[in-house]
Write a protein that binds this DNA or RNA. Structure first.
Lengths: 217, 217
DNA sequence: TAGATTGTTAATCGATTAACAATC
DNA sequence: TAGATTGTTAATCGATTAACAATC
């Protein structure tokens, strides 16, 4: 009720949004003030029409004919639209190599993502800290999630444990799960799940390299 | 010329392939011999028609009405189709936290991906080994890629260095780049590029959590 | 004013879904 | 045989692209 449109937005559009924001911040840093959809399209290798349509979902201020969009305002609109100005607390389960990387990654703050604690079953690392963030015992996961109203759980455990962790998180009332374990996970309908699917990326690359088949686009 | 079809295949289809393979291997391990498109569809939460169409791109042997597909054969067909039985040598540039994780990850072998060396500019780690794989000086990157005919380069350097590394790789004759740096990279047209775009995943999740807008599907 | 760019509507393209004959 | 499932063709749906009036 606070945003101007309720038209359904496609996932494709949504996933281009971070690209716009990232590039806009870059050119803003280089001293640019205005940018046209044509220029944006060229850099991101899409068409100007796509850019204009995408931006129309997020922009409150309008672009000016012949000049384009005022970059600072455009970034602000896009970030607000994406919810990056809305802090989302998260926990991460499984503090192995990948878990440590994510726990230490400062870039998530740009997206409003705040990982506040890690969980692991290895008692050797429980009660230690990584990047100032406490590693807690997996036994405390459910209680922590429900008492702190955590919305997002990140799963970086070995694949055989991923389903169990997901089930625990769901029971504790998590709203969304970001799964890095290379396995299919089933959760109740009210929990949204996003698989960070490196296998899918590799699939495309692999096909490009082998080139025994025609891939579209 | 060795595969049975030349119909263009959609990226969507391609990205579902690893899911089929992964699940099929799981049920094969549980002792199943045959599976129907209906069963596959249910588990992966898509429709049977999609499954049948997807599989029809890759299968040489046909499914049997009333019974379904013979799992071992189906896995073999899919893996061949995806080029997983075709070893693709790769190098990884930027041996920080994420680079180390990828260099140590044994799962890539399942996709025919073989990372044979890492490169970094930090002389403290040059000539050490991770997971039995040598870390070499970034100065030797171009020579190594061209003399060894490396097809794939993985980029895990900080974002400000990503473009430079990509340019070097392209000059050295790399065919494809898998970019983990959170930035847009420009390469010549004959180099294919895949951005491992965690920001895009987060975009979707973030939107789901904030829910001030309707996202399709 | 002329020309470039916006924002939006209409046309096209392609992927998903539904329907169904063939088959075991 | 009857029923389930395959493989494929036709219909639908949705996203991208093209076209264009409005505007600075």
């Amino acid at each position: 009720m606070e945003d101007k449109k309720r038209t359904p937005i496609s996932i494709a559009t949504l996933q281009r949004m971070p690209n716009y924001i990232s590039y806009l911040k870059q050119v803003l840093g280089e001293g640019c003030e205005y940018i046209s959809s044509v220029a944006l399209a060229e850099v991101l290798q899409i068409t100007p029409t796509v850019v204009k349509k995408d931006l129309s979902f997020a922009t409150i201020t309008e672009g000016k004919p012949k000049i384009g969009f005022y970059i600072p305002e455009l970034i602000k609109d896009l970030e607000h639209f994406m919810g990056y100005d809305n802090v989302k607390n998260a926990v991460i389960v499984g503090i192995g190599h990948l878990g440590s990387v994510l726990l230490s990654y400062p870039g998530f703050a740009n997206y409003g993502l705040n990982i506040i604690a890690g969980f692991d079953k290895n008692q050797d690392i429980v009660n230690t800290k990584i990047n100032g963030k406490e590693i807690m015992s997996i036994d405390k996961l459910e209680e922590f999630v429900s008492t702190n109203g955590i919305k997002l759980g990140i799963i970086t455990v070995p694949k055989q444990f991923a389903q169990g962790v997901a089930t625990k998180l769901a029971k504790a009332g998590i709203e969304a799960i970001w799964n890095f374990a290379p396995t299919h996970i089933i959760v109740p309908n009210d929990v949204v799940i996003k698989n960070e699917d490196m296998a899918a990326s590799l699939a495309w690359l692999s096909k490009q390299l082998v080139k025994n088949f025609i891939v579209k686009k």
